[in-house]
Design a protein around this nucleic acid. Structure first.
Lengths: 194, 194, 194, 194
DNA sequence: AATGAATGAGACTTCATTCAT
DNA sequence: TATGAATGAAGTCTCATTCAT
């Protein structure tokens, strides 16, 4: 049951996420957020200590399900290659469903002066960790070539997928997920397979 | 001969680039720029219409040599696979030498409300075009598999290289360019070769 | 009931009017306005889009009663000559009571680059229209000579009254309204009577 | 023979006069003046101590001929009524030929914080003095009614003429000087004649 | 005699935050 | 639980003036 307060919070989250993905954190004003959310200005400060804390809470709330999403994907496939396949597919799906959030992560990840920077870096490490584990396993059982650095390769595959997905959504949104997934997976599997 | 005005301009460019790569465009104030450049506040407005136009000019001036850099790399190798190799190496080198500018490009490319957005998108398209041409040639002479979309693959390889390079510079700056280049090229060439 | 916001608005209006009548629009700073109004700087921008819009609203709000004032004066006298008399008297009274506003109107009316210029021109036309109508009626019933252009004469009488009134208030404020009115009316009535 | 320096000065005078008549003294920038005059910014400060002094010199240079113009008109007619006639005609002619300057005088005359205010007030007094002297003479010889205050009447006639002339030039520039002069003179002479 | 790059005080405006209701 | 008027520090930008050439 969504209480009145929960509804208000989520309206502010939606508005902030949308705006920040378009104009960045500094480029988005509290006035714009409350306008779009349809609440009064004071309401932000009733619920949060400030603008930064609103975004912090927003990130925290969206991140928990993201990690679960990846964990589930990784758990669903035992074979290393199909696990990589599943993880990349999970990444693409999540980006498609959380386009604004994904854009925000990309533009805010490199900023060194944000209070949530640590959180984002840890998140990235955790997700890349899933891929690296799969690569490790693949190297062990001979499915994956051993002349690549697993950590490096995991981060590169993750980055390739993120940029391909954003390119897709921003510049070529008519392509299907199937096409994009197929292309990315083809490149990724060939890149690492023994 | 560097005139006084040209010298002043370039001092402001350097300061702005450095600061914006650290704190973003909105997060950087004109006061900070002029402090670091060692000029008076009015000087920015004597040379440019405003803060945004300063950055616009900065981007326009830095971009010309970048395209030349890629064109040269592409022209130096006839064989498709070595051309891809040369282009990725050129990308890595350029990012290493222009780290601040590269960070700025990544964080500003996805921003929809910037006057220089168009310029950046065109630049990206031009650079990816070099890679795509090489892939096209490779497909024709059989060196590259024909079941990938050349445009998509070019964009994915470019993105993989950018994120790998930034990861390297931000999280692991002690690695050598040689190691990084070798790893990226290994992944890239396997990803596309027939 | 005067709400808090209305009270704040009118404090800013009073301060702006006083200052602008002394130093002109460009010569008056927002800092001076808020100082005299006893509000914070941001308050101007909470209520208005900017300094110019504050003045625009001020003019719009003060102008409505002015037109009513003239309309009432015109309606109070049926005979054309006494209607002209009443209108000129109304003009003098209003200028005496709204000296600051009158000075502002005179110095801003001829300015071609103000957003409220149109408004002022329309106002002037409306007020002169009252006088012209009285002259028209006087010409018809023979009380006023027919060899003058009614529109021209109305504008001339209006202008004569304004300058005489400002001369009075600025250079000779000790004279009584009665003396000034008597002198102006004597000149005006002789100027037009048959 | 106009020296180079004199030519430069007059170019700056023309530009300043034009701009100030449109936008006022504070509303006109030195940049705009030098742009329109086609000289470099420093040139203003080579010739004058500052922006205000430029205008001061401009006023001083234009005012000498103006007083001569009125003196000549007054001297050309011995009869009081025709002297008033000649003075008003002189006023209209001068305004027509020096429209920008006239507008500037009107908008700057009431400003209490200008260094040239004193000069303008004295000028106004001098010109009105010519008219008042004529009225005095007319009262003495019985041509002009004695129940009006000569000073007041002179100032009122002067003001009527200025506003009628500006109305003419700004709102109805197609009318001929002849028509305007005829109308104004008709009103003025009737207003004061015995 | 003239130039134009550079200055810096001060203008207008923005915006995260506070607080009485 | 929510509001919105008010705040003021900090931002962007303007502009008269200076000065080396």
């Amino acid at each position: 049951m969504a209480t009145r307060a929960e509804n208000t919070r989520s309206r502010m989250f939606d508005a902030a996420l949308q705006l920040i993905s378009e104009k960045g954190f500094s480029g988005t004003t509290v006035d714009e957020i409350v306008d779009r959310a349809g609440v009064a200005k004071g309401t932000v400060y009733y619920h949060f200590a400030g603008k930064a804390e609103l975004v912090e809470a927003l990130i925290a709330e969206q991140l928990a399900p993201l990690v679960v999403h990846f964990r589930t994907a990784a758990a669903g496939a035992y074979d290393p290659m199909s696990r990589i396949d599943a993880l990349i597919r999970a990444e693409l799906e999540w980006i498609r469903e959380n386009r604004a959030f994904a854009k925000m992560l990309v533009t805010e990840l490199w900023r060194e002066d944000r209070m949530w920077r640590e959180t984002l870096v840890l998140l990235r490490r955790e997700i890349i960790g899933f891929i690296r584990d799969a690569i490790d396993d693949g190297v062990k059982n001979g499915a994956i070539r051993s002349d690549i650095d697993p950590d490096f390769a995991a981060s590169a595959l993750f980055g390739m997928t993120v940029t391909a997905a954003l390119d897709w959504l921003v510049f070529d949104p008519d392509k299907s997920l199937e096409f994009v997934a197929e292309q990315v997976l083809r490149l990724a599997s060939m890149a690492v397979s023994a």
